[in-house]
Write a protein that binds this DNA or RNA. Structure first.
Lengths: 183, 183
DNA sequence: CACCTAAACGGACACGTGTCCAGTTTACTG
DNA sequence: CAGTAAACTGGACACGTGTCCGTTTAGGTG
């Protein structure tokens, strides 16, 4: 996955940056890139080379969460019909977004970058799996793809905490209704 | 519409800021708030008091466009059934967003602010009109409101120009399908 | 082992946004 | 018509992001 021929010190620095970021995130609630760089003992330039944007950094810090999310997709598919599986997965995404809204935005940005690079990325693949299962059974319209869903659920980023309960889940249902193949 | 008792000089300054903003927008393609303030002959503080955020300023500059959009809603309703009217209106919004993406984002932010202040604002009202017409005829699900739609179509802001044609219109259809009342 | 080169480094710097506050102007009041 | 409180003004300033570029160093070469 990593570029070939990376210098050893670079790898180490990258690790230290991530470590510092984790510490800053849990200790302070303000996440300042400069502070992370300082705490990691590197210059801003180094930080920015490893992670072009703040989102890239945050997304990497929470990569494990993302992995969990990705892993949940096949599990849900094994236990439920495609439509409920997709619904459940999206609910889980929403739940995650509710608690860690900043991270969610970061992950979203990361996914978006992957897509720009003509790669679906793990999240995109998980979504594709879910969608394909639904299409195969004819319960999901065939003309939607992972990117479409990601765009649609982007509203989670903008939801005010106060109105979360009233709208987040509900709008997910509306979207799912739009995704269904209506006989 | 304006707050009562505004000082005359303040009104004038506000007008000059808008004027300057218009000029900057058409001349340069970079819209820097500082530059606008300078050109208007006011300090940044003044600019920021009149328009708390850059979005507020841009939204005001393009208020006429917004008005046109709002005015289109009843016209569409007069000529078409509620569902096609809503579809047409959303298409129009999308068309607008395609051409003036920055402005669209600004307008969206403005709408969002209105809503925070427990006021629908013109756009929200136009949308409500369209939705109500559909609900009255039973073709639109009763449990959605203007805010819901605004959240959903927010994806337009994030769409890359390259993929606009492929997705913008298509996703609007998906959303509309979700909004329909399925018999 | 000395040398070389490209990758990696780091921190100063440029830039835009938004805040703050001391001074000024306005419009009302007695 | 002078006094006064509130509203307005303007620009310096604080802050975070991201860029740039001269310097350092890893790791291979003869």
């Amino acid at each position: 996955m990593n570029a070939p021929r990376r210098r050893a010190d670079a790898t180490e620095n990258r690790a230290r940056i991530l470590q510092a970021a984790r510490e800053v995130i849990v200790n302070a609630n303000e996440v300042r890139l400069n502070e992370i760089a300082k705490r990691a003992g590197v210059g801003q330039g180094t930080l920015y080379r490893h992670f072009p944007t703040r989102e890239a950094l945050l997304a990497e810090v929470y990569r494990k969460d993302v992995d969990d999310l990705v892993a949940a997709a096949p599990e849900l598919l094994a236990e439920h019909e495609p439509l409920p599986a997709l619904a459940g997965w999206l609910d889980r995404v929403a739940e995650y977004a509710k608690v860690k809204r900043e991270v969610f935005a970061a992950v979203e940005a990361g996914v978006w970058q992957d897509l720009s690079a003509h790669s679906l990325g793990p999240i995109g693949e998980a979504l594709t799996t879910l969608l394909d299962a639904g299409k195969a059974e004819g319960v999901i319209r065939p003309d939607v793809d992972a990117r479409d869903i990601i765009l649609l659920i982007g509203y989670l980023t903008r939801l005010e905490p106060a109105e979360w309960d009233a709208r987040a889940h509900h709008l997910l249902r509306v979207i799912l209704d739009g995704l269904r193949r209506h006989t």
